[in-house]
Design a protein around this nucleic acid. Structure first.
Length: 256
DNA sequence: ATGGTAGTTCAACTA
């Protein structure tokens, strides 16, 4: 089995102990990280090397930053979408063993109708064009990361309240379903899941304790890869630790 | 339409 995981760590500097403990416990073949908030020179490469992980990082000071850790040697395919010159580091596409991983940190969008929201939709348009190219090329790949989109009412603790708000608005959900229409498969929904499966909980108002969350972190598989998916689950464990990220890791296993 | 918390950086911004 080949295990792929994704985790928005909201500062790798602060979360490194959690990430290392989790790596030791789960030993995923690939772990995609978002919001490292580090420049490349501050990336803790040695800590990962000691655990026999190769790593790539597209870093940025203060905001964003994406990384891929891999037990097999990893090679960079792209760290941006062609024709979209974006100073924000949100994309890392790499070959890890036999499969390609496209790690994304989709813009949050701030508020529906805002400048940042338009940037989010524009960004999602470039993503869609990029994945269309990968599918046309017949690549076996996974698109993983923080999509900042809850695709359906089952992915939202209170859909009525969230209706029309950023992370759950129709334009965002349509962008997500556009990816599924291309043939990408939401691995979490391949399998029966207990209700209330979320990946993000606001730090405020004891949201995690009350499970007031959203499922906005996803693992999408290309058609051929999806046929080999054998499990997908959210690990809420790290969200309950001291000084947690506001996101939980998601992982999927694929027949090799 | 605001508040609640967290991270980075140092008053304010992003999430």
């Amino acid at each position: 089995m080949f295990k792929i995981a994704t985790w928005n760590v909201n500062s790798l500097r602060v979360r490194l102990p959690h990430v290392l403990d989790w790596l030791d416990a789960e030993r995923p073949d690939v772990l995609a990280l978002q919001e490292t908030k580090l420049q490349d020179r501050d990336f803790p490469l040695d800590a990962f090397r000691q655990r026999f992980y190769h790593a790539l990082h597209a870093g940025q000071k203060t905001y964003n930053g994406v990384a891929i850790l891999s037990r097999l040697p990893i090679s960079l395919i792209a760290d941006s979408f062609p024709g979209f010159d974006d100073p924000q580091r949100r994309v890392l596409h790499a070959q890890a063993g036999a499969i390609q991983v496209l790690n994304i940190y989709v813009p949050n969008g701030s508020e529906v109708g805002s400048e940042r929201f338009e940037y989010k939709l524009r960004w999602l348009g470039h993503l869609r064009r990029y994945t269309a190219g990968l599918i046309a090329a017949g690549a076996g790949f996974a698109v993983v990361g923080d999509f900042n989109i809850a695709p359906a009412p089952e992915d939202v603790h209170d859909p009525a309240t969230w209706e029309g708000r950023v992370l759950f608005s129709m334009p965002e959900r349509e962008a997500f379903s556009g990816l599924l229409q291309q043939g990408l498969v939401d691995c979490f929904r391949i399998f029966p899941q207990a209700p209330g499966g979320y990946t993000w909980w606001d730090y405020r108002a004891a949201a995690f304790r009350r499970n007031l969350g959203l499922r906005i972190d996803h693992i999408l598989a290309s058609p051929a890869l999806a046929d080999r998916c054998r499990s997908c689950r959210i690990d809420t464990g790290p969200r309950g630790l001291e000084r947690p990220s506001d996101h939980a890791p998601v992982m999927a296993e694929f027949e090799t």
